[in-house]
């Protein structure tokens, strides 16, 4: 059930979205849920739908980008926009715009290589760039440090936390853990994935697959004598949509 300003939400707005759109799927899930989803304004609700849709779009875009899967020790980036750190992360250069640097990953993906967690952060930044005007994005994100869940900007820091949700929704970040991974390939200890539609997931290095396929791939990366299968955790990572919407209102509307 969706509550806006304390009242049950008039579902008429759903008609604004196409029949099989991401927004409709999310609306329907929230509407029929026994749990209450509380929003202060309709704008908050619509912003969450929009950002979730852009997270999914950015996942498809990154999957097409030709960015390779490389472990942190061997990570690479286009040094015209980023400085590679000793840890293997990418730090936005002081003389370039964040929007141009994020876009470059999608344009010159072959110049980049990193692990799955950093790829998730790239997805979030690209989604935000698809929502915010370029100038506002550059103003809000003048310092970007891409390195798994470390160094997250305060506006998106919540994506680094995993919580048990009431429902699983498209645009959620999930995690498949591989407890018996081969100790020589620790980067296959798990896979961060974006829920694209409840059936397909995007994970960097694995592509767009069903969760069963990703689990089967991770199981091939287990060590000798492994007994436990990889499995999908019941937690999700989400941005604080309302906080980002407030920043949007403050800077755009």
């Amino acid at each position: 059930m969706i509550l806006v300003s304390g009242k049950p939400f008039d579902a008429g707005i759903i008609n604004e979205y196409a029949e099989r759109s991401v927004e409709r799927i999310i609306f329907n899930k929230l509407s029929v849920s026994s749990e209450q989803y509380v929003y202060d304004t309709v704008s908050q609700l619509k912003f969450e739908m929009k950002l979730r849709k852009e997270i999914i779009n950015a996942s498809y875009q990154l999957n097409r980008s030709k960015m390779s899967f490389l472990v942190f020790r061997k990570s690479k980036c286009n040094e015209q926009y980023w400085a590679r750190t000793d840890e293997g992360g990418f730090l936005l250069r002081g003389d370039v715009r964040g929007s141009d640097a994020i876009n470059d990953i999608f344009i010159n993906g072959f110049k980049y290589g990193t692990e799955c967690a950093t790829a998730m952060i790239i997805v979030y930044y690209k989604a935000l760039l698809n929502v915010f005007p370029k100038e506002v994005f550059d103003q809000l994100f003048s310092k970007i440090h891409l390195m798994d869940w470390h160094y997250l900007d305060r506006l998106i820091k919540e994506v680094g936390y995993m919580k048990k949700p009431k429902e699983y929704l498209p645009g959620d970040r999930r995690y498949i853990i591989n407890p018996d991974v081969d100790p020589l390939t620790p980067h296959w200890q798990g896979e961060n994935i974006i829920d694209l539609n409840g059936n397909l997931y995007y994970g960097h290095g694995i592509g767009i697959q069903k969760s069963e396929t990703i689990i089967a791939i991770l199981n091939q990366k287990r060590g000798e004598g492994a007994k436990r299968s990889a499995y999908l955790l019941d937690t999700v990572g989400r941005p604080d949509f309302n906080k980002i919407e407030a920043a949007y209102n403050q800077n755009v509307r």
């Binding site: 692990e115 799955c116 967690a117 798994d148 869940w149 470390h150 997250l152 820091k157 680094g160 936390y161 995993m162 995690y175 853990i177 407890p179 980067h187 200890q189 798990g190 961060n192 955790l233 990572g237």
Partner: peptide, 10 residues
């Protein structure tokens, strides 16, 4: 729990 920095910031 098996949680790691690959999975979460904390």
């Amino acid at each position: 729990s098996g949680e790691s920095f690959q999975q979460t910031s904390h």
